[in-house]
Design a binder for these strands. Sequence first.
DNA 1: GCGACAG
DNA 2: ATCTTGTCGC
Length: 230
Amino acid sequence: MEVRDLHEWPATVAEAEAIQDRLRPSLDLEEPGPQALRTVAGLDVSYAGDGGGTGARLAAAVVVLDARTLEVVEESVVTGTAAFPYVPGLFAFRELPTLVAALRRLTVTPDLLVCDGYGVAHPRRFGLACHLGVLTGLPTIGVAKTGFVGSHETPGARRGDAGPLVDGGEVVGRVLRTRDGVKPVFVSVGHRIDLDTACRHVLALAPDYRLPETTRRADRLSRDALAASP
DNA sequence: GCGACAG
DNA sequence: ATCTTGTCGC
């Protein structure tokens, strides 16, 4: 599929923040988004060694599923190196080049991208899911496993129970329980979809486990690719 | 000022 | 993210 060029790459924290600020106006946060999905892609990255700096070896995976059956339609995985040190809020710059390379190898264009991390629930309202949305033009959402920005009440204990994630006085996401009695996930929109629709899709994608099947498949693929590569 | 801090 | 043993539960 087509993905916009990354163009200039930041060398400093200030440059990376400036890029986020410059791209943010391109976000479409008005569309309700796709109500019915034919295909949906999950993205994830695994690392080897060096936990925080630039240059760590990594594998970026994209797995496209049939949204109805959750069966694999296509897989793409690319190995590379971390393109930026880990800095909370700039996490996307670490793995964006390799993720984009994996997306470009796709022969099908998914109806939705499910990213590992956050969308607008971000210090500058431009997390990984937003960045990938602007680069691909596709609807994107972020599903994170732990908190980052914002505060929330503990949602009910049953699957489907949820509550707002609030930051700076605005609702930036939703804390959503995907399994009875299991720690909830943090859902935020990235591009071209609304929060209700995003949460509906997350629940449909996670019938048996805490995380969406898209994320679980991409996680396994990236992990296996990393272990199999020199 | 001191922590906390997506992966 | 990754480093890691045992352990509780279906």
